[in-house]
Write a protein that binds this DNA or RNA. Structure first.
Lengths: 138, 138
DNA sequence: GTATTTTTTGCAAAAAAGTTGCAAATTTAG
DNA sequence: CTAAATTTGCAACTTTTTTGCAAAAAATAC
């Protein structure tokens, strides 16, 4: 059950398991990447202050990550809490969709990091373009 | 000379070549990626409204792009105005370094976008890890 | 389960970031 | 050089994010 995942994660880090935290986790785990405003309005019973604080907490615990999508950012569960993947975002309508996994890209990224002497920990990839619907109307 | 680049770009798009635009271009072309606030404070003689409007204009003309460096977004000249490249950022010290180009990755990204029916226009890639110096001290 | 301690929440208020309308100034075109 | 068109700076405004603190909820000890 998905509450057990967040329960365990928070217990591990010695922070309280609260109703707002569970609800925010639920929303994030059942949606495509969300903006902060979308998260806030999707949980009107939770104060925006709590939303900001919870997202900051989750980020610091590695539960949530931010994606830069053009000028804005969106939130999603980090790779430990859902399958590793990347996104493509429509430049016109803003819709965000997951890309299929590509082992070759993943491997080459590790190699590139090594060339610079870095020890890679994580990466993020965003493609931008026109979605099928917006291609038609363009 | 570098002013001629921006002169030509703006003329091509039928927009005026003004002093603020030249100055903002100069700052961008002589620096590592900058935040909006860094850009604004580095040009105190230019009003922030003008800075926002100019960056928006440059972005719409494809002169400037935003990218994610760590948690903040930063601005840099886009691929047409400097070599296409990606970055690796050190999680510990924040240092940002360019990654060598990789044709295989570039090609596969186009293919992935096509799978989703998207027409890819642009992409961004950020690797995070530990730089050589921070690996030692860790 | 209840009392006590600790942590977290919601609210109000404020700071920070980004946007808009418009008159004055600058740039472009003739 | 002049007239037309575009852009700038300013002030006011909206939106986004942060802070302090009392009340509420959760964790801990009994």
């Amino acid at each position: 059950m998905s509450t057990s995942v967040i329960e365990q994660a928070l217990k591990q880090h010695h922070v309280s398991l609260t109703k707002p935290r569970k609800q925010i986790y639920e929303v994030l785990s059942h949606n495509e990447p969300l903006t902060m405003q979308e998260l806030i309005t999707s949980l009107p019973q939770i104060d925006k202050t709590t939303a900001y604080r919870t997202v900051a907490l989750f980020e610091s615990l590695g539960i949530v990550q931010r994606l830069q999508i053009g000028w804005k950012y969106k939130l999603e569960l980090s790779n430990q809490y859902q399958d590793h993947h990347h996104h493509i975002t429509c430049l016109q309508c803003g819709q965000t969709v997951a890309l299929p996994e590509d082992e070759v890209i993943e491997e080459r990224l590790l190699a590139l990091a090594a060339v610079q002497g870095f020890e890679p920990k994580d990466h993020q990839l965003e493609v931008r373009g026109l979605c099928p619907a917006c291609r038609q109307s363009a």
